[in-house]
Structures are given as C-alpha cells and as structure tokens.
Design a binder for these strands. Structure first.
Length: 275
DNA sequence: AAGTTCCCCTGTTAGC
DNA sequence: TGCTAACAGGGGAACT
C-alpha cells in the first residue's frame, strides 16, 4: 500500500527510466481506471508524446508530458509501475505504454482501485478537485507546527484519523500513521484538540524523520506478492508497532483495533491517551 | 459543517 | 481437504 515514501521511490524509479522516450502506442485493458477522460481519447492525446518529468503531490504521481499535458496517477492499494524490455503481459496489467526503443511501462493493479486523470496543463491539474484539497507536504519547508497548530487545535478527530486525512498532511497512510503515533508516545485515539503544542511539535518532527528514513530504505514492502522492480523496500524491518505483537520498548502486548475502519496498532503503556 | 460509515476490488488467511 | 467468510485499505460518496 504505497504511501508517500513508496510513491517517491516509484517516481525516482520512473524518472531514471522513462524520461524522453517516445510513446508509440498505448494499450488499455481496464477502462474504468480513467476518471475524467475516455480511454480512447486518452490514447489519442498521449500517443506520440513523451514524459518530460514525474513529480509527486501527496500520494499522487504527476506525469508531465512534453507538451505540458498531465497524466495524474494514484496507486491506491496495489498499483505498481513496471518498466522493462519484455512485452509479456502479466495478470492485472491494465495499461501498457510502448516506447520507441521497444521497452514498455506497464501499470499493474490487482485490486483495480487505482485512478488515472488527464489534464491539458499543470494548472488545470493543480486546480482539480483531486489535487486542490491535498494538504502540506511533510518535505515542504513550511511544514512546521506553526502551519498546523490551528488545524490540530480546532479538530475533534482522533489523532490517527487526522494523520490519514490528506487535506491536513499529504502522503501519510495507515502504516506510517501508526508509526508516528508510536514514535510520539501518543495514543492514536487521542483527540487532536487536546494535544499540547509540544505534542504537535513532536508529531511534525517524527513525521519528517520516519518518512525520510523510509525513503532511505526504499519504502515499506508489505504485500503477499511482489514483482515490480521498485518493490524492494526494506523499511518493514524498521516498523516498531505496525503489525507487531509485542511492544519493542516495554514488551507488553500491542493492542489492535479499528479506527475509522483502519487497522490500528499501539501500545497502551507507551502511548498516552489525551481525551 | 464536520465527522463517520460504507463501498469499490481481489488475493490471502482464518475458521469450520 | 475444500469451502466460505473475514480481512486488507485510500479515498469518494452517502450518510448522521
């Protein structure tokens, strides 16, 4: 389940492989991925162009074409990009970009949850309802307690729910939300409005630290099957609370419950609740 | 208005 | 062993 670090790793992977390669054909095998354009029109508009750059906003991948048009891609749970030289189509390969040098980029998504949007230019993309609501990026220089303090203070959400809300902070998913709560010693059930300024400062610091560290390890790989080239992350070995049975700090049992339908792991002893 | 629940989907796992 | 049900989860829609 790609979150910010995994998406960044994918983007780095794509930027080092597919830039400036002329797209000579696109095969679309799952129509419903395309949200604001008919697949046939997408194919018409993108064929004979090339990707100039790929950037990230939250968990979205923004592919910038040589003519300034934008392909916006969200991987959701299982979306993967696989660049290679063979044209063998695997199960769940839904979009196949064929380049002039006989290489291919395949979008593979076993759960079919991913999405593709097309925009004529970057401004249209950034002003779309998909991107407009995305909050501040943890690697933005303005990502600090000053910019987030009031959002925390006036929110009645649980901390975990707040961290997962992309309109507050961009890119945090379920795994890192659990890790951030653990690192700060705060229960995921704590109410945001009851957090102290010091708590919020710690959340900012730990968020930066954890996401940065994860990118260093190429992200987290927790799937039952893995095959794409980027999918070689090792941060799963660094996770302190997500998926664990015992607290690595105090050896007590890790509690598992659901907050807003998401599996939530925490240590009752090490993580204080502020109700 | 803000917060919560359901739903999309398929592969894996737990339970009988 | 083989079946079914539960689970995984990002985000949008529909609900309270």
């Amino acid at each position: 389940m790609p979150e910010l670090p995994e998406v960044q790793v994918v983007i780095n992977y794509l930027n080092s492989n597919i830039i400036n390669k002329k797209i000579i054909d696109i095969e679309i095998r799952l129509q419903k991925l395309f949200k604001n354009i008919r697949p046939i029109d997408f194919k018409k508009k993108v064929t004979n162009h090339s990707f100039k750059n790929i950037i990230r906003k939250g968990k979205y991948l923004i592919f910038i074409l040589d003519n300034g048009a934008i392909v916006l891609s969200h991987l959701r749970m299982e979306g993967k990009y696989n660049y290679d030289k063979n044209d063998k189509i695997e199960k769940h390969d839904h979009i196949i970009y064929k380049f002039a040098d006989n290489t291919t980029l395949k979008y593979n998504d076993s759960r079919q949850f991913g999405t593709i949007h097309y925009f004529n230019n970057i401004n249209d993309a950034l002003n779309s309802k998909e991107l407009k609501k995305i909050g501040i990026d943890p690697f933005d220089e303005n990502f600090n307690s000053k910019s987030l303090l009031s959002q925390f203070k006036k929110s009645n959400k649980k901390l975990k729910t707040f961290l997962l809300d992309q309109s507050h902070i961009a890119g945090i998913g379920n795994i890192y939300a659990n890790e951030i709560c653990f690192a700060t010693g705060l229960s995921p059930e704590s109410l945001c409005c009851n957090l102290s300024s010091k708590d919020i400062e710690n959340i900012i610091i730990e968020t930066k630290k954890i996401l940065k560290e994860s990118i260093k390890y190429n992200g987290t790989t927790i799937h039952s099957f893995t095959f794409s080239k980027w999918d070689i992350g090792n941060y799963q070995d660094k996770l302190l609370v997500h998926g664990r049975k015992k607290c690595p700090r105090c050896e007590n049992d890790i509690i598992k419950l659901k907050i807003n339908g998401r599996g939530t792991y925490f240590c009752k002893k090490c993580q204080k609740i502020k109700k």
